[in-house]
Nucleic acid binder design. Structure first.
Length: 425
RNA sequence: GGAGGGGUGGGUGAGUGGUUGAAACCGCCGGUCUUGAAAACCGGAAGGCCGCAAGGUCUCGCGGGUUCGAAUCCCGCCCCCUCCGCCA
């Protein structure tokens, strides 16, 4: 959520920056609503002051044995007036915040303007696309042929966009999770957390999924809980409603969770394979930072995610998302795109974002710059480190051999009991 | 699911419908003392909103009600604890 006080002071700048994301997005309702709100507030508070003073006076007079009937009657009338004004104030405030909550974050100055994927800016790449003396197979053929991946049985027990991993497939997925977590806690300084896989509406509001994107979520009835669409939600909310001491920052948490997404509106897109599932595993990195250093933290976080791909020897590139591709709450996002040999394409495998104080304001996450100072909103960041299912896809396709087997990259072998190769069973 | 108890400031914990935004203690910050520290003593310190400021206003789990006035009374909801039932 944007800071209303900031919008008020920098109205044209805010309009211009929002316009970079969504041409024609008007912030005019804020100007009117804000002015009316302050008008009403001043009047209500003036009347309340009067009533508070009179009430104290009534107490004193009663003790002194004086008659207060007239004053009481007068205050009853003031009370009615306050009630009427407060009702209007509540309506104005509701309209104001409801509108404010629908506005996306302001893009950072370094975010390129654009209309879509084609306008994302490639920053760098690592490694080279591997070459094959044979036609590389897509993972949706490789996996079933190896007997480690089964879409048909998953569809039978659940439905479309679910997968069943078997044998070395299940073990490989688990090894990847273990490998990623160990890397982040042992070498990158993260604290591991294992959060609930369901959250309430308040947590989802805090990170920005609600109220606008309810259709993307799985709701658990009759409890009004939601399955987590990403660990970002529970982990960012760890410090909701808290005021942290500055010397605790930056804080880094990493978490493994399954993620659940309804993928409403993505019909016909990526229907084959593991790329787009209703349930997938992810290791998530979340950082809490002082505002001054959050863009340094974004570079650091992105590097932590990149390290996973480098250790696994997977070719990838880093792109800065343009304004059109930026998610609702993000001020700046780097996507890591891994190379998928069979599809001859780069596919997103990690998304690293700085939300600045957008989520912090919604979730009320603050810090105290120094002892005795006023609390300030801190900055939140997160990034996948990495999407596990997509990593499995990249491994299978990248390390496939002519005989249909798949070599296990060296970094992963300790987590697979030393196994070097996956062969058909 | 049933029965009972409870939610007050960073923590523990008082609080009679009327200068109680809130005692006390612990912790924290500043000062005095000290070579330095500890101890002792003195002082300071909740958060939001409106305002240049002075100041005002709101907040004692959340929402509503009674009243001139609610942390205190009433109603609903949420959460925590104990016991019973069920269960990994």
């Amino acid at each position: 959520m944007l800071d209303l006080a900031y919008v008020r002071k920098h109205f044209d700048e805010v309009a211009e920056r929002l316009g970079r994301r969504e041409p024609g997005l008007s912030v005019e309702p804020l100007r009117e609503g804000d002015a009316r709100r302050r008008e009403l507030l001043v009047e209500v508070e003036r009347l309340k002051q009067r009533r508070n003073e009179a009430s104290r006076d009534i107490g004193r007079r009663i003790k002194a044995g004086e008659d207060v009937a007239g004053l009481k009657q007068e205050m009853r009338e003031v009370g009615d007036r306050i009630g009427a004004l407060e009702q209007e104030l509540a309506e104005v405030e509701q309209r104001l915040t409801q509108f404010l909550e629908t506005l996306p974050n302001l893009p950072h100055a370094t975010v390129p303007s654009g209309q879509g994927e084609q306008d994302n800016r490639v920053e760098r790449s690592w490694g080279e696309p591997p070459q094959y003396a044979f036609e590389p197979k897509p993972h949706w053929d490789l996996g079933p042929e190896l007997g480690i991946l089964d879409f048909e049985r998953a569809a039978r027990m659940t439905g479309a966009r679910f997968a069943l991993l078997i044998g070395d497939g299940a073990r490989l997925e688990r090894a990847l999770i273990q490998f990623m977590l160990e890397l982040h806690i042992a070498e990158h300084g993260y604290t591991e957390v294992l959060p609930p896989f369901m959250v309430n509406a308040g947590a989802l509001f805090g990170t920005g999924q609600l109220p606008k994107f309810e259709a993307d979520l799985f709701k658990v009835q009759p409890h009004d809980y939601y399955l987590v669409p990403t660990a970002e939600v529970p982990v960012t909310n760890i410090h909701a409603d808290e005021i942290l001491d500055a010397d605790r920052l930056p804080i880094g948490y990493c978490a493994y969770t399954p993620c659940f997404r309804s993928e409403a509106g993505s019909y016909g897109k990526d229907v084959r394979g593991l790329i787009r599932q209703h349930q997938f595993n992810k290791v998530e990195l979340v950082r809490f930072s002082a505002p001054e250093s959050s863009y340094d933290e974004l570079e650091r976080l992105t590097g932590h995610a990149e390290a996973v791909l480098q250790r696994l020897g997977l070719h990838y590139r880093v792109v800065t998302l343009c304004t059109a591709d930026l998610s609702f709450a993000s001020a700046k996002t780097y996507d890591l795109e891994v190379w998928l040999p069979a599809q001859r394409a780069y596919r997103e495998i990690s998304s690293c974002s700085n939300f600045e104080d957008f989520q912090a304001r919604r979730a009320k996450i603050r810090y105290r710059p120094e002892a005795g100072a006023k609390p300030r909103m801190l900055h939140t960041l997160n990034g996948s480190g990495l999407a596990v299912g997509r990593t499995l896809v990249a491994l299978l396709e990248t390390y496939q051999q002519a005989d249909g087997s798949v070599i296990v990259p060296e970094a992963l072998r300790p987590h697979l009991g030393g196994q070097e190769r996956i062969t058909p069973r």
